[in-house]
Amino acid sequence: MTALLVPFHYPFMQRAAIAALAVGVLCSAMGTYVILRRLAFIGDGIAHASFAGIVIAYMRDANYYLGAAVVAVLTALGIGFVHRRGRISMDTSIGVLFTGAFALGVFLMSRQSNYAVDLQSFLFGDILAVQPNDLKIIVGLAALVAVALLVLYRGLLYTTFDPVVAQAGGIHAGVYEYVLLVLVALTVIIGLQSVGIVLVAALLVTPAAAAYQLTKRFAPMFALSMLFGAVSSLGGLYLSYYARGSSGATIVLVTTVLFFLALGLRSLRQSAARRTVHVSSPAASK
């Protein structure tokens, strides 16, 4: 048993494990709303948009997290605004805003002569480089988003299922939409350092999509999604230690494997159910 825990004897691996757990659980909890609102594209979009914030922070010698968070939140609010005012679908709004913000980041980066080393880790993530101060930010932000999810649970659930009727009942569906977008933006920022902006979208979608295969109720889906997020994050980190591969990529590969296992399990259950119906039907017994 002790031998199995060898990777976690190192302080950097302990910090990485805590960060991975926080990111994995939070992304997958948020992911439940993301996929049920058909916003699978949003994580990718905000992650790319936040790149502009990182470049601006780099140019001004400011905190990268802060720069990324400001641009991510502004982009999220902009997506909601353009969606509502422009009467266009959320996906179209995401497409317009994120490409614009990402292009701004690329433009600003192209004017810098010495940028690559610092920005690479934010593009592809390096959870093993998480420092104690980074960990405090990650855990603090994760706790903030988790509390918001808990407090807003009923409103988020109702406006996700039926925003029109929720609005008629007096629940402000538009406000909940903006709040959800901001929470997604913060979640993406939290995931930046662990898996990077390229892969953070996967943790927002895949664990929740895997959970959706296995249950027809929201609360179990929420719980299963968080479990898959935790297993993927810790499992991916652990495997990456021995595989000597990128931890962010390994985490995403593990969650992808979990998704296909869930899909297979669902198919098996459906086949078994069909066989049961077939065997018990009068026509089959003749």
């Binding site: 299922f161 009727v165 959706y212 027809k216 889906m221």
Partner: peptide, 8 residues
């Protein structure tokens, strides 16, 4: 008006 595949 709603998606009846919602998990509920």
């Amino acid at each position: 008006s709603v998606d009846w595949s919602f998990p509920a």
